[in-house]
């Protein structure tokens, strides 16, 4: 089977997909993998071409907007080793349009759609589970450790929701941060991090929330299994209500 290689960046990935779709008569029959994973690898290396990658994505947005969104979610998962599935999915999306997401009996569609769905589920979850703390200067600060790289979509979500206050998001595992300050949204990476001082009011509000959390539960209907399946314990670390 013919093999193509790319350099591991998303620009290069989409450039390669775009190139293959143009040059290969049967994209179903080629492989696409990251360069440098094996010692003696053979294959055509395709260089990143930002313009071509963007053009591909624009065309996809027009032809199949739902699939374009699925791919956006899929990319949040930062999955390696599924490039060939992605190639087939894109090729099917151009052939069938948005209907492709219903083609769940096709292994490539199923791979991409199920990973995108998992990313989408965590994104939705984090919209609820993120917890801000008020700092001394009146800004709000939230830490998180999601499985997927959610900082961009989360930041744009809170940009509309909490636009009247300044806030920071910090992804502890990836060391990336988003900052919304005076109507400007910025992204960056952080190497050294110190925990800023909390405002005087913060502990009081946290205590109110913890109290509410405890009293709202019906003790006659305790159900820790259901609680954990809805809110897995991996998220508890940063939940204010679980810090007692």
């Amino acid at each position: 089977m013919k093999r193509y290689l790319y350099d591991g960046t998303s620009e290069s990935l989409f450039s390669a997909i775009s190139w293959i779709l143009e040059e290969e008569a049967e994209p179903e029959k080629v492989l696409l993998t990251e360069q440098g994973l094996e010692l003696f690898e053979e294959g055509f290396f395709i260089k990143a071409n930002t313009g071509q990658a963007e053009l591909l994505f624009q065309r996809l947005c027009q032809r199949a907007p739902d699939s374009a969104y699925t791919i956006t979610l899929f990319m949040l998962a930062e999955k390696r080793g599924m490039e060939s599935s992605l190639l087939r999915y894109v090729s099917l999306a151009f052939a069938h349009g948005d209907k492709v997401n219903g083609y769940l009996t096709h292994p490539a569609v199923r791979d991409i759609v199920s990973i995108a769905k998992r990313a989408g589920r965590e994104l939705h979850r984090m919209k609820g589970l993120l917890r801000f703390e008020e700092l001394q200067d009146g800004a709000y600060f939230a830490k998180m450790e999601p499985d997927h790289n959610l900082i961009q979509p989360l930041a744009s979500w809170f940009r509309t929701r909490l636009r009247a206050q300044n806030w920071f998001l910090y992804d502890v595992k990836r060391r990336t941060a988003a900052c919304w300050s005076n109507g400007m949204l910025q992204f960056g990476t952080i190497d050294k991090f110190y925990i800023p001082a909390l405002s005087e009011d913060e502990k009081r509000v946290q205590l109110l929330w913890q109290t509410f959390f405890r009293t709202i539960a019906l003790q006659d209907r305790k159900n820790p299994g259901l609680q954990k399946s809805n809110m897995p314990m991996k998220y508890w670390k940063y939940l204010t209500e679980m810090q007692t």
Binding site: H124, L129, F213, R221, K222, N223, P224, L226, Q227, N230
Partner: peptide, 15 residues
């Protein structure tokens, strides 16, 4: 779609 923010000890969503 609605968003749940936490789940109480009885497993019910707190939104």
């Amino acid at each position: 779609s609605g968003i749940c923010h936490s789940w109480a000890d009885d497993g019910r969503c707190i939104s």
